[in-house]
Amino acid sequence: MKHLKVDPIKEGTVIDHIPANKALKVISIIKPVNDDIVTIGINFSSKKFGRKDIVKIEGRELTSAEVNTISLVAPNANVIIIRDYQVVNKRLVEIPDIIKGSAQCGNPKCITNNESMTTCFTTVSRDPVRLRCSYCERIFDIDELKVD
């Protein structure tokens, strides 16, 4: 019998294949509210990646904007939608060509850090993840940006 480290969920979203120790970053992106039930698994063994994190959120299906943001910190993650204990949709996240509002520019002299406005980045490379701010035009490694 298959041994499950975390309980299955009836309705909601499972985010699998998050890089090890990035689960809390994913949590900060999906911003659970008071009633949300969230299960976090850190450092699970993974055939593909050696170690991985996993996040399950009950009763909520993530929006495409949330999935796009998650792709920045977990570019190989699988997003699985569960309804009535069944997998109804399973897809690999994909970093979009243009990313709006998901990350703060790392340049303190960028207009986006000084005016109330939405940030915008274009994807320069997906592996490693590197983005160009559409305003100050600088290129950043994903670790140099605050993703939220």
Binding site: I111, M117, C133, Y135, C136, R138
Partner: peptide, 25 residues
């Protein structure tokens, strides 16, 4: 003085904008 300011301004107005220097960009 802020980088990206000219592009931001061009999104706020309906007339052409010329960037005459935005920070060190």
């Amino acid at each position: 003085p802020l980088e990206g300011a000219a592009r931001y301004i061009s999104e706020q107005v309906r007339i052409p904008v010329v960037n005459a220097g935005d920070g060190s960009n």
